[in-house]
């Protein structure tokens, strides 16, 4: 059995980076004084119970030419926010769709979507199409293109 506090530490290391070597899990298991099979079991369990959403490689979308990155935010009445969230989440070019609380008066928007594309015009065209196809014209929205990326990486759990 892996102690609870050690589990968070393992997840931290797993999200920060697994080495690209022939036997990556064996390598990591050594770091934690675990048998490889214990580590594999832990990861499988974490996937099954939803603590790990995805295992794999995260691409640098800038480097791949996806340089236009827009956070599109929407002000949708609470009574239809689930319905609109579902519609937006189903769009092929929408990579994320989260509901977050408004912070009035500073911030009125409660649905957050990310749209990536190779060009700004392409992202805006996708957005217009989504609005037209789903009759979303009535909901106030704002488009926040990224200007610069200062940090991109996995979440870290730091010991206090």
């Amino acid at each position: 059995m892996i102690p609870e506090e050690k589990k968070l530490n393992i997840l931290d290391v797993l999200s920060a980076g697994i080495p690209v070597v022939e036997y990556p899990y064996k390598e990591l298991a050594k770091q934690f004084n675990l048998q490889e099979s214990e580590l594999l079991g832990f990861i499988q369990d974490a996937i099954t119970d939803g603590k790990i959403k995805r295992m794999g490689m995260v691409l640098n979308h800038h480097k791949l030419g996806f340089v236009a990155n827009a956070m599109v935010v929407w002000d949708v009445p609470d009574c239809v926010v689930d319905k609109v969230g579902n519609i937006l989440g189903k769009q092929k070019c929408v990579t994320l769709c989260y509901q977050r609380p408004r912070q009035l008066p500073e911030w009125r928007y409660n649905l957050f979507t990310m749209i990536h594309g190779k060009k700004r015009q392409e992202v805006l065209a996708h957005l217009s199409q989504i609005i037209d196809n789903n009759a979303l014209h009535e909901y106030p929205r704002d488009v926040l293109f990224s200007v610069r990326k200062f940090k991109q990486g996995g979440a870290r759990y730091v010991n206090e």
């Binding site: 697994i18 690209v20 939803g50 295992m55 995260v58």
Partner: peptide, 20 residues
């Protein structure tokens, strides 16, 4: 591809609703 930063990270993506 990792060295030239096409791959920015190899690891797991954690569900923050369940962890932390």
């Amino acid at each position: 591809l990792q060295q030239d930063n096409t791959i920015s990270r190899f690891g797991c993506v954690i569900n923050h609703r369940k962890v932390g």
